[in-house]
Design a protein around this nucleic acid. Structure first.
Length: 663
RNA sequence: GCCUGGGUAGCUCAGUCGGUAGAGCAACGCAUUCGUAAUGCGUAGGUCAAGGGUUCGAAUCCCUUCCCAGGCUCCA
């Protein structure tokens, strides 16, 4: 019997006897590894531990505390979830159950149209733990398509997947089955078998650090027109500690939720009298908004934009011409019908208005590129289940610009636009970006194939030239053109869609907009749509979460609070405040009617960047005490002028001396 | 829009089996005068989301509507 040699990740070689499996390799390396081993990566393919190895294979043993390991154990946990549910609800149909970020889910259809309730999670959890305790092996088998159809005859979703694979359909289904002309399955006991490519952990006893998190409805194959299934989500980790750490992290993320902070810091609210997705900004939120809008205006002005204004409503005719009523009507509020039968609509976008401004007189090529900017409030009738805080609202203000240019200008214009966008986002402290290129929607698109192909090619070239990570979003474009969206990663690693840049050949055509070219011919301009913050509301939400409410000083509603130690220091406190206010600093005094500690605590909870304390020594020496946000070490005896200079410099530079990552 | 939860004082929450609505914080008043994250005492505050039903009696049980959260779908 001949031996076989395999190479390990550290490039060392191991010799094994013929027919050895990855598990044999793990045993040969060490007892501890054999006990921890969940799966193997053989020649870069993730596979079961009991896969036979071949001479020359590159093999890595997958252990729990790794990306591969967590993926495997999450996937296996999903199977245990399905087994538990089929035990508790005999006759339940199970659909798909993949590993996802931090956990797993499984979709079911319960007999008699039953639904899971929150209480069911407790029962399912207990059943899963029983299965783990039974230490059931995961056994892999392969069947022909025909045998598979018989085997899963009572599982309509599995049948559908097998049939799709037999037809050679989507990759998604191959992931479930293993692909080719056979299907692979895993069975835990005689009673439970699931269609799956694997790999899985050797047995259920390798699992257990999981927690079921929630129930949800989810459409079969993610398609609204398909039946809605019952989904259970769970999180699973390699150890108790990792699970707890994850749950703690979730709590931390909750603390920086902009809805919570918006309420705690008195920034904005959603009065139920107004309806879902309609926010009011309180004075403090209003300051943040005003400051960031003002800064944006300055930057736009410096970059050659002109400011325009347009009304919130218009006759239907405008949106008929633009194509919105044909393509976007379901996102628009129903019309107001006037006596004469005239329909008026709230605007869902600003672009048609800007086209009219372009058309207000004859335009020359000499005027192009013509860049129009407006903080334009728009209204979209979002489905009731989708509104969420400030990130998804029904009334929002877009920092919207439309650039009219010639075909020759558009590539350069797009490139410089992207640079401008990224620069401005960086000024707000966001630094990690990637781009998404959204292409023609499969239905709901106006224009010819050629126009779309050209527009997509140009955007793709611009996106690639930006040398940022680029993700393709097939079919995600607007009805009038493809788009590049800038996605930003915040301080705790979540990504948010920020700016969008869209190329539009359609609306200039729909409105018959033209300019006079050098040869005196009439030419059609190209229109670039672009929102930089996305919406002001969403941008504020992202900033609040990015900074966990600790906004940089230049954006903070209240930058300094001055506290006298006793009430006979109040006069001096007001003097200091007046001096700073003269420089445009947002500063308040809280008089000494409560103990100093209580007033400091209050200011800290309000996340004010600087708490300034003044007492006897300060009155005598024209100094103050500086208690900076995030510092546990207050400074004493700082001269008033030194503090003023330092503060003004920080505000001017837009930089915050603190890391943005504080909780 | 669909699935699952939820809505009690400004906020966070308790409220047993259907039997007179509760706490802490905040607010307000008085006292306290204090050097870096909670001074004390007191006062006020509620159509229990809204409407309907069952009942001698509903925060509590049932129905409808509104709003919120987490998903699905969609999206700035």
């Amino acid at each position: 019997m001949s031996d076989l040699k395999v190479e390990l990740p550290d490039a060392s070689m191991r010799t094994l006897s013929e027919g050895s499996t990855a598990f044999d390799l793990a045993k040969a390396i060490g007892k501890r590894l054999a006990k921890d081993a969940l799966a193997a990566r053989v020649n870069d393919q993730l596979t079961d531990l009991f896969t036979p190895l071949h001479d020359g294979d590159h093999v890595a043993i997958v252990t729990p505390a790794s990306d591969d390991g967590r993926e495997v154990l999450r996937h296996s946990s999903a199977h245990v979830l399905a087994q538990a549910v089929t035990r508790l609800w005999p006759g339940a149909h199970y659909a798909i159950g993949p590993a996802i970020r931090d956990g797993f889910y499984y979709d079911f259809e319960l007999p008699g149209g039953q639904h899971f309730s929150d209480d069911d999670l407790v029962r399912v959890d207990a059943e899963m733990r029983a299965i783990v305790a039974e230490d059931q092996p995961f056994t892999r088998s392969e069947y022909s398509i025909g045998d598979g159809l018989v085997l899963f005859k009572n599982q309509p979703f599995k049948i559908e997947i097998i049939e799709a694979v037999a037809r050679g359909a989507g990759e998604e289904d191959l992931a479930e089955t293993g692909g080719g002309d056979t299907i692979s399955t895993y069975s835990n006991t005689d009673a439970f078998i699931d269609l799956c490519r694997g790999p899985h952990v050797p047995s259920t006893s390798h699992l257990g650090h999981f927690q079921l998190t929630r129930v949800a409805g989810a459409y079969w194959r993610g398609d609204e027109s398909q039946p809605q299934l019952q989904r259970i989500y769970g999180t699973a980790w390699e150890s108790k500690e990792a699970l707890v750490a994850h749950l703690v992290q979730l709590e931390e993320a909750e603390k920086r939720d902009h809805r919570r902070l918006g309420h705690e810091l008195d920034l904005f609210s959603f009065p139920s009298e107004l309806g879902p997705g309609l926010a009011v900004f309180h004075p403090k939120g209003g300051i943040i908004r005003r400051v960031l809008e003002e800064y944006s205006r300055q930057r736009h002005e410096a970059s050659g934009y002109e400011f325009v204004y347009s009304p919130h409503i218009s006759k239907a005719e405008l949106f008929e011409t633009s194509g919105h009523l044909a393509w976007f009507a379901e996102s628009m509020y129903p019309p107001m019908v006037l006596d004469e039968g005239q329909h008026y609509y709230l605007k869902p976008m600003n672009c048609p208005f800007h086209v009219l401004i372009f058309k207000a007189r004859q335009r020359s090529y000499r005027e192009l590129p013509l860049r129009m900017f407006e903080f334009g409030s728009v209204y979209r009738f979002e489905k009731s289940g989708v509104v969420q805080g400030l990130t998804r609202v029904r009334g929002m203000t877009m920092d919207d610009a439309h650039i009219f240019c010639t075909r020759e200008q558009m590539t350069e214009e797009l490139a410089s636009l992207l640079t401008f966008v990224l620069d401005l986002l960086r000024d707000f402290g966001l630094s990690e970006f990637y781009l998404e290129l959204s292409t023609r929607p499969s239905f709901k698109a106006s224009g010819t194939d050629e126009e779309w192909a050209e527009a997509e090619a140009i955007l793709a070239a611009v996106a690639e030239a930006a040398e940022l990570e680029l993700v393709l979003d097939v079919g995600g474009g607007a009805f009038y053109g493809p788009k590049i969206s800038v996605q930003a990663r915040d301080a705790i690693g979540r990504t948010h869609q920020m700016s969008t840049i869209q190329l539009d050949f359609q609306q200039p055509k729909n409105f018959d907009a033209t300019y006079v070219a050098p040869d005196n011919s009439r030419q059609r301009p190209i229109m670039i749509h672009r929102a930089l913050f996305g919406s002001v509301e969403r941008f504020m939400a992202i900033l609040i979460e990015h900074y966990a409410g600790n906004l940089p000083t230049w954006l903070s509603p209240e930058q300094v609070r001055v506290l006298g130690v006793r009430d006979d220091h109040d006069d001096y406190a007001f003097e200091v405040a007046a001096l700073l206010r003269l420089e445009g600093v947002r500063v308040n005094v809280e008089v000494a009617s409560e103990p100093l500690g209580a007033r400091i605590r209050k200011a800290k909870l309000e996340k004010i960047p600087y708490v300034v304390v003044v007492g006897d020594e300060d009155v005598a020496n024209a100094t103050l005490g500086v208690n900076a946000r995030g510092s546990n070490d207050p400074e004493r005896g700082v001269s008033v002028s030194a503090f003023r200079e330092r503060l003004l410099e920080e505000i001017r530079a837009h930089a915050s001396p603190e890391a943005p990552t504080w909780a």
